[in-house]
Amino acid sequence: MYTQALNDLPTPHNLEDAEKMANFQTRIDSEDRIEANDWMPEAYRRTLVRQISQHAHSEIIGQLPEGAWITRAPSLRRKAALLAKVQDECGHGLYLYAAAETLNASREALMDQLMEGKAKYSSIFNYPTMTWADIGAIGWLVDGAAIMNQIPLCRCSYGPYARAMIRVCKEESFHQRQGFEIMMTLAKGSARQKAMAQDALNRWWWPSLMMFGPPDTDSQHSDQSTRWKIKRFSNDELRQKFVDATVPQAQFLGLTLPDPDLRQDEVTGNWMYGEIDWEEFKQVIAGNGPCNQDRLASRRKAHEEGAWVREAAAAYAARQASRHAA
């Protein structure tokens, strides 16, 4: 998902106290929550810092494709909604950086890693937003997929992450609904509007399915994350839930999902989808998607242009502090 690029196996540490490890697993198994200052295996801490920071980066970079349409939204109502949604995504990033900081990572260091191209974020935000319909498709599909992934994270074993996800999930639902409303308006509009909606769906459908990460057969880190109850469902399970929820919505819109192999399994009722292009996924994660360079360049530019504000705030705070001391 937003952390689909995680690919190292956490290395079990023989040096760590076996008894502490066993107690830790017992706490996890009994659905106890782990808090910031509790003892935890180093690999648990490392896995969480990577997952939470990748998730945070995804929220922050995720503002860019949609932010590009704020000034071009077709009405004041749409503009206000999009602005509020993008502001929420910024907040999600901040909640998540704060959760990562409880594990002794610093937000500044994490953001620097992102800007240096050393950190990963979700592949989905490396695709361009070419028309207004893309804003509808993102809200409906991308936020829809994110919700599917984030709801089980509200029960993650690490307390600060779970609490951040509860706040995030409360805010997400409006994101998906405003996107679906945009799609609905276009799909019920003129032939050109409907074609625009169909075109956006064609381009966003497969990348949305890739958001859930590699198939279970080659997802390396899932087992340990599942044992630690960081992860509650496998990538393929979540992907299937998403497809099953979305197919009827596309039918309602009168739009066609761009998958000739899509069919409903008579026994399970699940919608079976065609082959996902995992090579494309690997390329986008590796930095070779259509917008990877752009996204990092925009992030760096915003950071550099904000430097004077940070410096001014620091100087003002220092002066106030020295006045109080005098």
Binding site: E108, D112, K118, R310
Partner: peptide, 14 residues
């Protein structure tokens, strides 16, 4: 990419 930036100075946590 991989251009090393000046480390962002830490800001107080509340």
């Amino acid at each position: 990419m991989n251009k090393t930036l000046k480390a962002t100075p830490p800001v107080q946590l509340w």
